[in-house]
Write a protein that binds this DNA or RNA. Structure first.
Lengths: 328, 328
DNA sequence: AATGGGATTGTTATCGATAACATTTTCGCA
DNA sequence: TGCGAAAATGTTATCGATAACAATCCCATT
């Protein structure tokens, strides 16, 4: 920086002003400094800046260590959005969303003097750990507790689940069975709620809930039960991987999809269009979620008056070929 | 830090020594300082440390923005390993692995004064961009150019492909068709090479190569061609998603797997066991790759004499039910 | 008891930026 | 023309750690 100042014939402070777009710099000086910067290939030292300002151009993300399609998509989308806004993203993943792990990751991030935090926290236990986060640190939650009181971006799980369930009912099915994700996930809870509401409103019987984790393996297990019950003609799986497991279990017992059983998934993973049969599912706007989260976070970082605290991104039914009217 | 020093009745330098495990500190002093640190809940400011040492406890990762199973797994595995070693990970993803994008991300990372870089660079164009990286920055490549001359960790793609191809030949098939990934990926090249070698060694005819990207959609397209050729009885797909697409195309034209056509994939995504039929595939040791990469990188960071520059992690055939002898 | 050298601790400078305050220019207007 | 306020620039202090060097302590040895 000193070199730049010398080359431009100004003080280092003026260089700093140019760098930070301060208003009171003569246009001519600004140009000279810019030229010097370019000529020397100078790049400011972020560590020094972080030290003196107490804030870095770093956003910390706390997420569950996972290759699940949803969280992974969210992460890369967010990283991309943050990069476009000139922020780097430091990832702190945890194996479990318990209080201790999250606390540790948050502390690591605070050590780095992150400008803000994004917590992808799909369970209540994770939401609890927010107490660890000092109130003056900008934070945005993704998929967190709607009653948490912090800025939050979620996908409209309830609406997505309603669309899926309604789609099956409208095809003529008496009722719809549901294979849910882990019940302590907010996502799962929302999907269960949407499913149940829709059945209630339609006056349909509400079958017992089959709950699972998010894996194809558990979907398979649930499917093995569903396949044995002749009355089951319509199933809504809480994600596409569960749906795949269900699909295989049905296939093994000779129950054809969609001829005998109609099936809807959730997520629209890129492979869903190539299941046998192509899966009708619900697409979540991960990119929108990521961008909304970044916007909220930047708002907090720049101390702008919070416009909206909670953003809900819509989900969209994608119709393929795994749903037909029931065969009588 | 000053507060800690005062409370412990020592100078700030001594506190620094305790923090950095310097040898020449009396045990008693060390204990006093530790107690003071604990009492005040003191945590060192990483920005200040980075400023003075010129190195942070941050590892920069350059990766392709992708929800592909492989890269995503690699990333979370690496993050976990790095966290265990006390390093934070800053992710810089790029849309395309071209020189400019990579250059920009690398510069962003260098601004942050990362202690080292990990580049997940599966294509030659990415490997070229390594020229942007100054020689004194520790770098490890994952999936990069074997002839690149930098530290490199790869999965043994050739051996994996050989195992897959051999498995099909040993089942009695005359030859094996291959649906490859993008040909500019090193991974693809290795798998193609292993496939071709094995056929040559067995004296089998080498069918024309079908190349695709990594998606189920392209696998489907390739499968539509394969399904029309009666002589095709064995297919090796370069990843499980391609295999899924192939599977559906075959199914659509009434060619049963494995009865009419045997199929092997690559990756062992968690869903592969629930395809119809369960997919025989090749598992890559992503965790091992990540840990090896970290070890190499830490070695460079600590200026240890390089033990090995290249690490090759084995791949392992996972036998399921998508392969049988050809029906005559 | 004196001495020397290693072990321990302290003092001061430094990293590279911004903040706060001081100073000099510039320019509109009486 | 001269004055004062605003604009532009410069000077010095500061963030919180480590590096380099200086000073002290301790203990074995003679």
């Amino acid at each position: 920086m000193t070199d730049v100042a010398r080359l431009a014939g100004v003080s280092h402070q003026t260089v700093s002003r140019v760098l930070n777009d301060h208003p009171n710099v003569k246009e001519q000086t600004r140009i000279r400094v810019r030229a010097a910067i370019a000529e020397l290939g100078y790049r400011p030292n972020r560590a020094a800046r972080a030290l003196v300002t107490g804030r870095s151009q770093l956003i910390g993300v706390v997420a569950r260590n996972s290759t699940l399609y949803g969280p992974a998509s969210m992460l890369t989308e967010f990283e991309q959005a943050a990069a476009d806004a000139g922020f780097a993203v430091s990832v702190g993943s945890v194996r479990e969303l318990d209080r201790d792990s999250i606390g540790a990751v948050v502390e690591r991030h605070l050590d780095q003097r992150v400008a803000g935090l994004v917590v992808i926290a799909q369970t209540a236990s994770a939401a609890e750990a927010l107490a660890e986060i000092p109130a003056d640190v900008p934070v945005v939650f993704i998929d967190g507790d709607p009653a948490g009181g912090r800025a939050l971006v979620t996908v409209d799980q309830v609406a997505g689940a309603r669309a899926a369930t309604r789609h099956l009912l409208e095809a003529g099915h008496q009722t719809v069975w549901h294979v849910s994700g882990p019940t302590d996930w907010f996502d799962s809870a929302g999907r269960i709620q949407g499913w149940r509401q829709t059945l209630e409103e339609a006056g349909a019987e509400i079958p017992p809930l089959l709950s699972a984790d998010w894996s194809a393996a558990e979907g398979y297990r649930a499917g093995q039960m569903l396949a044995r019950m002749p009355e089951v003609t319509a199933v809504f799986a809480a994600n596409d991987h569960l749906a795949l497991g269900v699909l295989r279990a049905l296939h093994e017992r000779g129950r054809r999809v969609p001829h005998d059983v109609s099936l809807v998934g959730f997520d629209d993973v890129p492979e869903a269009a190539f299941f046998i049969p192509p899966l009708t599912t619900v697409r979540q706007g991960f990119g929108d979620v990521a961008r909304a989260a970044l916007t909220l976070l930047l708002g907090q970082i720049h101390d702008e008056p919070a416009t909206a605290d909670q953003v809900v991104v819509p989900a969209q039914l994608v119709v393929r070929q795994s749903v037909t009217p029931p065969s009588v």
